[in-house]
Design a protein around this nucleic acid. Structure first.
Length: 739
RNA sequence: GGUCGCGUAGCUCAGUUGGCUAGAGCGUUUCAUUGACAUUGAAAAGGUCACAGGUUCAAGUCCUGUCGCGACCACCA
């Protein structure tokens, strides 16, 4: 044995051996199953993935405890996320999604993902993860598509799906609507304009939306304006005079501004609700490209921000601005991905009715059929479930699972809006009718199709059918271009990862480990889908691990320049040291700082483990001069007894901690024992005996040392395996042992 | 505004149902060693466990309040 443990020399070899000898999975024993949270298929390893170690710890621990551990990996197509990354690449080439038809865009993203996928698995192997790589599932695999589409059609049949023109947060830059969970609120200072509005003065930060106003609202108890309520008032505006209704609604805060609010149902969520209450017209004046439309007269074509400037300029010229409060601070809803202002707008969207679906989820959580670690997340998910409302699942993104809805073209040519790239490569946008009139044929339109929009018409809806397969008379139909929100498919992860026969024995699975950030997006949806489709919870325990931050507790980000590449640390100090540094002295559900100093500390620990082994091993074959003996001094006899006793206590505590998911505690326990009790005290006490050839002393040390190796193996698999082989022979593996 | 959490050594953090003479990693100081390991060992300095009350034989741990910090949710015309 070398005087130092050199992970660089052994780790890769050991992992290869585990793979070659079929030690990755076991069949014997009671089932223990973990489904790996699928990383984005095009992702490469970042520090946060290091926390997957927690699952490897569980897998290895349970295995040593005699379970048939199974860890199924996979990757996620991650719709919006991936398309976002891809579009950034496009932007570098001076291109955008508008330059491609849908099919081409999809294929390009597909090959982009393919190029980059698989990388992360090699990096996971470097970390020692014992997942069953052959069973990897990709969220666009055929069987996944089948399940996801089946779930959708089943839900539709049972009345859980509806289409609605609802106000959604739309990112005009990324070209998709987002769920409320995907929005971020930021505080910002914006000018608050006081506009003259007929007999009123009202305050607004969005004067450019005034073309979409369909009412003015005051508080029902506001005496100042009582006489106007229910009347129509005449207002002088930029497009001339118009009449507008005055309504009374509790939503108005009498104390804010002048107590008068303009109502723009198409472009403000509150106004949209107010509009519903009062039966107001919804007048959409901003298109999804973020520009004002023809209803804004001369302002048509301007982007929202440009329009605002121009509108204010013109209002000022007309003397319609009373004052401007330039110190107004309010919160603005922005895109979680690109940070730009989101445009609340009306888009036809597919929704999942959640009210009945979430009931059994709440019940299961309340009854602790699913347990959360740490416990406090039980409350958090319950709180979130209570406020959860209908889930908009449409994303105007090419990269994803296309919603299996087909619209009837015949008779609806002027009701179906779309954009496409024509045979000259030009971008076109309008209704089907418009382009048929211009001499395009349907095939060309379909071939270059980018996106279709089918609004909801009061008089006569466009007929659609829900079908996974293309309708027989396909020329009469056109498929919805919206794709499912990624969480709609990843939410069904537990339904697509196991083999049919495994659902009997491995379902519900044992543990779902993930970051608390996606508790509402993912964990709650998985529970919901599973209870819906299988009438069974998908997993018994949820373990929320920590977010990996830098050594000062700061979130890692490229802009801050504090991103740590875990592979560098692994190459330098070994996977064991890296893994242990994320576990040792930490607690779940919060932040865990990743500091090189700590990795070094843990590297020292792995080296200590190695050298303890080295000492014991060296004395296995003492030189000729020593006489082997079984006799032991009585004082040392006591020490050995004490050692055994202490070890037994350690072991008990360890098992208790591990079974209670207190991994940090378990590792801390063994660390303390093996280093500061076993090595510093017991070995020192028995050293002379051992060197002088006392068999019992040496044997005791070896036995207890090996026992500790097994306890440490889940945390630091490589060094423990390496030493195990030294003691037991190259062909042996600690993975076959039991704890 | 609502909910949850946190405030423990210079830094980053552990501390399960109350029993601590309060710990770890890194850092600091002193000493030791060609002997399993300097990626080491022995020792030391450093804390009124945010503050104020309360419950208890006993409180870092439970309760109430105050201050500070963070996360999430809701809302802001």
């Amino acid at each position: 044995m070398d005087s130092k443990f050199q992970p660089q020399l052994v780790e890769e070899k050991l992992y290869q051996e585990w793979e070659e000898k079929g030690l990755i999975s076991v069949n014997k024993g009671k089932p223990f199953t973990i489904l790996m949270p699928p990383p984005n298929a095009n992702a490469s390893l970042h520090a946060g993935h290091g926390m997957y170690s927690v699952e490897d710890i569980m897998i290895r621990y349970k295995r040593l405890r005699g379970y048939a551990s199974l860890w199924i990996p996979g990757t996620d197509h991650a719709g919006f996320e991936t398309q976002f990354v891809f579009e950034k690449h496009l932007a570098k080439q001076g291109k955008s999604r508008f330059d491609f038809n849908r099919q081409t865009l999809y294929e390009n993203i597909h090959s982009f993902v393919k190029e980059n996928s698989g990388l992360i698995y090699n990096q996971f192997k470097k970390l020692g993860f014992l997942a069953d790589w052959n069973r990897s599932v990709f969220t666009l695999d055929e069987h996944v598509l089948k399940t996801v589409l089946e779930t959708f059609t089943k839900m539709e049949k049972e009345g859980y799906v509806y289409k609605d023109e609802y106000i959604v947060n739309y990112c005009t830059h990324d070209g998709t609507s987002l769920s409320e969970l995907e929005t971020v609120h930021v505080e910002r200072k914006d000018p608050l304009y006081y506009l003259k509005y007929g007999p009123f003065v009202l305050a607004t930060v969005r004067p450019e939306t005034k073309f979409g106003d369909t009412a003015v609202a005051v508080h029902p108890k506001d005496k100042r304006y009582k006489k106007w309520v229910g009347q129509e008032v005449e207002v002088e505006g930029l497009l001339g005079k118009f009449k507008i209704k005055v309504i009374a609604d509790e939503m108005v805060d009498m104390k804010f501004g002048t107590g008068v609010v303009k109502i723009t149902p198409a472009h403000d969520p509150n106004d949209f609700e107010a509009g519903k209450r009062h039966g107001l017209e919804v007048k959409k004046i901003i298109n999804i490209d973020g520009r004002l439309n023809e209803l804004a007269g001369p302002y048509a074509g301007l982007k929202v921000k440009q329009a605002r400037v121009k509108v204010i300029e013109d209002l000022q010229k007309k003397g319609l601005i009373k004052k401007i409060d330039s110190n107004y601070i309010h919160s603005v809803t922005v895109c979680y991905k690109c940070g730009r202002d989101l445009e609340p707008t009306i888009i036809p969207n597919w929704f999942i009715k959640v009210k009945d679906l979430k009931k059994p989820v709440i019940e299961a959580v309340k009854k602790e059929k699913i347990k959360f670690f740490p416990k406090r997340f039980k409350k958090q998910i319950l709180q979130w479930l209570e406020v959860m409302h209908d889930w908009p699942i449409s994303r105007q993104i090419a990269w994803g699972i296309r919603i299996p809805v087909w619209y009837l073209i015949n008779g609806n040519e002027s009701k179906i809006w779309l954009s496409f790239i024509d045979h000259e490569g030009k971008f076109k946008m309008g209704t089907i009718q418009q382009y048929l009139d211009k001499g395009y044929n349907l095939d060309e339109i379909k071939k270059g199709l980018q996106q279709i929009t089918v609004p909801i018409y009061k008089q006569e809806q466009v007929k659609y059918l829900i079908s996974v397969d293309e309708p027989k008379d396909s020329q009469n139909w056109i498929q919805e271009t919206d794709t499912f929100d990624t969480w709609f498919s990843s939410g069904q992860w537990p339904l697509v990862t196991l083999k049919k026969e495994e659902y009997k024995i491995r379902f519900p699975t044992d543990v779902m480990g993930t970051l608390s950030d996606i508790l509402p997006f993912w964990v709650s949806r998985m529970i919901m889908f599973s209870l819906y489709a299988k009438k069974e919870i998908p997993f018994k325990n949820v373990y929320l691990w920590s977010k990996v931050v830098d050594s000062k507790g700061q979130k890692m980000s490229k802009s801050k320049g504090n991103v740590i590449n875990p592979i560098d640390l692994v190459n330098k100090y070994g996977a064991d040291a890296f893994r242990a540094s994320l576990i040792f002295g930490t607690s779940p559900g919060g932040n865990v700082p990743l500091a090189e100093e700590k990795v070094i500390g843990m590297r020292n620990f792995t080296n200590k483990i190695w050298n303890i082994g080295r000492f014991i091993y060296m004395n296995k074959n003492p030189n000729d001069k020593t006489q082997m003996t079984n006799k032991i001094q009585s004082s040392n006899d006591k020490i050995i007894k004490q050692l055994r006793k202490e070890f037994e206590e350690e072991r008990k505590k360890y098992i208790k901690s591990m079974d209670g998911y207190r991994f940090s505690q378990a590792l801390g326990l063994v660390y303390e024992f093996i280093w500061h009790r076993f090595a510093d005290y017991y070995i020192e006490q028995l050293k002379d005996e051992v060197i002088n050839g006392n068999i019992e002393a040496r044997k005791t040390l070896e036995e207890i040392y090996l026992g500790n190796l097994k306890m440490l193996h889940p945390f630091i698999p490589f060094v423990t395996e390496a030493v195990w082989k030294v003691f037991k022979g190259e062909e042996k593996s600690i993975l076959n042992e039991s704890l």
